[in-house]
């Protein structure tokens, strides 16, 4: 049964203190880390970049990244297209969200729509492949993306189902919503942070959007040797799941780095889990192996 499946997954989640005890991220950070955390020199470049473009909202996004995704936006809902890996991974990401957020908000995991009455935001929603299932699970979902084309596609697709037509899609950035003082019960940014220029600023925005006692969930790819081999060499070059150049290994964050920048932004990471791909079954599953893809759930500190 599905319910027991979710309960069983609990044991996979790596409890954080154990995880932090063997981390060595303080030494690793300043020298190697390409994404600025707090270094003043690093912050200059992206900032000047986004202010140059007067029309666009202040953002921690990288312009070339936007162009890259804009080019393949039409194929968001083609489960065999460029976003196939995301489609395949989607049920696993949602299983993690369902189980952690049901616990966080004390909702009944046996309900078909446990998130009824909660406001969720899907930051970097793309074509809406995460927003739609969240809406089917009862949440009042807002999806934002910096690419106008993605939002159009997400809007069109969501309108085809009465349960998902209630999703509020908007072409904007997390920073812009912070300015508008919007708040959400859960702020979810999956596979997005590796595409932003300033991960620390981005995390601050996520934190600012999270309501009091709300939850923040971030997933990304680890900066490990295995992630280089699997996410870039295998996924982009050998299997050609993803267009070449989708990911830049140097802009990946390790779980320790992510935990720390979230902590500085006021989000206390409570649980972390890994996603592992089984090439024999072609399925993803949750695991305690966070060496490639991982997801972190945190709560807003008071």
């Amino acid at each position: 049964m599905a319910s027991s499946m979710f309960l069983a997954q609990r044991r996979w989640f790596r409890s954080l203190p154990r995880n932090l005890s063997n981390a060595r991220f303080f030494s690793a950070l300043p020298s190697q880390h390409p994404v600025s955390v707090s270094g003043p020199q690093n912050n200059v470049a992206p900032k000047s970049n986004k202010f140059e473009k007067a029309s666009s909202a202040p953002s921690s996004l990288k312009e070339p990244e936007l162009a890259k995704f804009s080019a393949i936006a039409d194929s968001w809902w083609d489960s065999e297209g460029p976003f196939k890996p995301l489609h395949k991974m989607n049920p696993t990401r949602l299983a993690f969200l369902r189980s952690t957020l049901c616990r966080h908000f004390r909702k009944d995991p046996l309900s078909a729509r446990p998130f009824e009455g909660l406001r969720f935001i899907d930051v970097g929603c793309g074509g809406g492949i995460l927003s739609e299932p969240l809406a089917r699970m009862g949440a009042t979902v807002s999806g934002i993306d910096a690419i106008e084309k993605n939002i159009k596609i997400a809007r069109l697709h969501a309108n085809l189902d009465p349960t998902t037509s209630t999703i509020e899609y908007c072409c904007t950035t997390a920073e812009k919503l912070v300015e508008e003082q919007r708040k959400f019960d859960a702020v979810i940014a999956l596979e997005v942070i590796e595409h932003v220029a300033d991960a620390a600023e981005f995390c601050k925005s996520l934190s600012a959007l999270t309501a009091h006692e709300g939850a923040t969930v971030v997933s990304t790819i680890n900066r490990s040797m295995r992630s280089y081999a699997t996410a870039i060499v295998a996924a982009e070059y050998l299997l050609q799941w993803l267009p070449k150049g989708t990911h830049q290994w140097s802009s990946f964050l390790t779980p320790e780095e992510l935990t720390m920048i979230l902590k500085r932004a006021g989000v206390d990471v409570k649980e972390m889990a890994g996603f592992v791909y089984n090439p024999l079954t072609g399925r993803w599953s949750l695991s305690d192996d966070i060496s490639v893809n991982f997801i972190a759930y945190g709560t807003k500190e008071k």
């Binding site: 599905a2 499946m5 979710f6 049920p91 949602l94 299983a95 078909a112 299932p133 699970m137 189902d161």
Partner: peptide
């Protein structure tokens, strides 16, 4: 029925071929 239940748990459209 168990596959349909798993699909609903993660908000899937139950007619999706995947």
């Amino acid at each position: 029925s168990s596959v349909i239940s798993e699909g609903i748990a993660v908000g899937t459209d139950i007619g999706e071929v995947s």
